[in-house]
């Protein structure tokens, strides 16, 4: 994974305008994480973990703001308006996965994020973009902390190192399944759009014709429905 990131980073971040878009995407991902952590804080049965999830959520809030601000700066430099507030939706991960699997999933996400951001920090350092480098370095430290505490909690909740590792493997499997479904949705979406376009072109003209003939849509008929029913 890290190798892939290393390979594509110089290319991806050099596409004009893409950097701002990517950073905004990161801001939305952080916002999405925040929503899931808030749900975790509401639903966990342990006071200690509730506080930990809340602190983590507060970090994600800050990260989202930092990414969004940098994205807006880059857009402004390019003479464009920013993308607005980073808004995310949610899959209710905690509710669906349960606390143990949720922790395993978050741990993997944080670890992956840390490795990815290390590459980005180096990349921007080598390009002399100190502002963006500092942004990633600052967030990196938090990611490492999140990685640690989720790991500790995972061992605590599963009872052993061994069991925690099993959970991490299961989380990896679940993630693969989810990635597969996301890809499936994208492909299904394309196939569906294509099918619908064909349906539209074949079926719309005759239907539209009959429909226009058959329905009370003249001005007089519309007005009549206002005057009395």
């Amino acid at each position: 994974m890290t190798t892939l990131v290393r390979l594509v980073t110089p290319l991806v971040w050099r596409v004009p305008g893409h950097g701002a878009r990517k950073l905004f995407g990161f801001a939305r991902a952080e916002q999405g994480s925040r929503i899931d952590l808030l749900q975790a804080a509401r639903l966990t049965t342990s006071l200690g973990r509730r506080a930990q999830y809340l602190r983590h959520a507060a970090d994600e809030t800050r990260h989202a703001a930092l990414f969004a601000r940098r994205s807006t700066e880059l857009r402004t430099d390019a003479g464009k308006a920013g993308y607005g507030p980073p808004i995310a939706d949610t899959e209710d991960l905690f509710e669906r996965l349960g606390e143990v699997r949720f922790l395993a999933f978050v741990h993997r996400g944080e670890a992956r994020g840390r490795r990815q951001f290390e590459v980005y920090a180096q990349h921007f350092a080598s390009r002399g973009d100190v502002r963006t480098e500092q942004l990633f370095r600052g967030i990196l430290a938090d990611e490492a902390r999140h990685e640690d505490y989720t790991r500790t909690l995972l061992v605590e909740l599963t009872g052993s190192e061994e069991a925690a590792r099993t959970e991490l493997r299961r989380a990896a499997l679940w993630e693969a399944w989810r990635t597969w479904r996301r890809a499936g949705r994208a492909i299904a979406g394309l196939v569906f759009a294509l099918a619908m376009s064909v349906v539209y072109l074949v079926a719309a003209p005759p239907t539209a014709l009959v429909s226009r003939l058959g329905r009370g849509r003249t001005r007089r008929q519309r007005r009549q429905r206002y005057l009395s029913l």
Partner: peptide
């Protein structure tokens, strides 16, 4: 939006 996932 995929939480905890930063696209490459």
């Amino acid at each position: 939006v995929a939480p905890f996932v930063y696209s490459i």
